[in-house]
């Protein structure tokens, strides 16, 4: 009796594991109550693994580098390649970015499980929107959508611990934009931005050298100045940067020299 029962529940669990909850078509039930109109039909949020509660970002999370720079017709988004857990680097080729649609890109840092889970949840919903409406969401719309989701999560039992940079080009006006979001769901549109300790090193450099009319080449030069400073001053090796840019041709990969040796100060 016991084995039989145990076996059944095991199979049940296995099914649930490889079939995420939001993939199951249990939304088919119609809602017809007029006084309570149906919610925006989003994909259901996946139930994620229970982590130990960690309300504030740990030091190793702040060591992750996220950088964003806008210019006259592009937005650069860059993220460090090191995947860290405590003092250990687990992976040196990590890509902490997801492309959401043709003209927007999300970079993330924060708690290991939450980051990818949340980014892919946003990615799935953005793509769902594109499919349903035959039009892409603008970066501004995505940013506010993300903020809403993060703000809801913040007041839940287990909030996502994710910091984000969202870069993109408006599909209609082609204006570049960059949005800074932290795990508290604060949202700010900014010309250039960083997350973690990198903020302290990079923002002042960009304050001095950035202006809104720069071209892509200058943007990458500025990025180099920032990463050089990080290599020079930050006490850990972040294993180089994944650099992408959103331009009118979509998201492009940018070759970036990670092996450049920077003389220490």
């Amino acid at each position: 009796m016991c084995t039989d029962h145990g076996c059944a529940s095991f199979i049940d669990k296995a099914y649930r594991c490889d079939q995420p909850e939001w993939a199951m078509p249990h939304q088919a039930e119609a809602r017809l109550r007029v006084d309570e109109p149906h919610e925006d039909q989003l994909l259901e949020r996946p139930t994620h693994l229970q982590h130990t509660k960690q309300p504030f970002p740990g030091y190793h999370q702040k060591m992750e580098v996220l950088l964003g720079i806008t210019g006259k017709d592009f937005t650069i988004v860059a993220s460090s390649k090191a995947a860290m857990r405590g003092a250990t680097i687990l992976k040196a080729q990590d890509v902490k970015q997801r492309q959401l649609n043709k003209s927007s890109l999300l970079a993330y840092s924060g708690e290991a499980g939450d980051t990818v889970q949340f980014a892919e949840y946003i990615q799935a919903n953005t793509q769902l929107y594109s499919m349903r409406n035959e039009a892409d969401l603008s970066p501004s719309a995505i940013a506010h959508f993300v903020r809403g989701e993060l703000a809801t999560s913040l007041r839940s039992r287990k909030p996502y611990n994710v910091n984000l940079l969202l870069g993109g080009l408006d599909p209609i006006t082609l204006k570049p934009s960059l949005y800074w979001l932290d795990y508290l769901a604060s949202l700010a549109p900014v010309p250039y931005a960083a997350h973690g300790y990198a903020q302290y090193y990079c923002l002042s450099i960009l304050d001095k050298h950035h202006n809104p009319d720069i071209d892509l080449e200058t943007g990458i030069k500025l990025l180099n100045m920032c990463t050089d400073e990080l290599k020079r001053r930050m006490p850990i090796d972040f294993k180089g940067m994944t650099v992408k840019a959103v331009t009118k041709d979509g998201v492009i990969d940018i070759d970036f020299d990670d092996d450049k040796v920077v003389k220490s100060a």
Binding site: V34, D40, H144
Partner: peptide
């Protein structure tokens, strides 16, 4: 009246979610 109230709520909900006015066709 019922439908218009529903439409207004939908439009405002979209505005709150995306900070943009809802596209007409939607």
């Amino acid at each position: 009246n019922i439908l218009i109230n529903f439409a207004r709520q939908s439009a405002q909900r979209y505005l709150r979610t995306y900070n943009e006015d809802i596209p007409c066709e939607q």
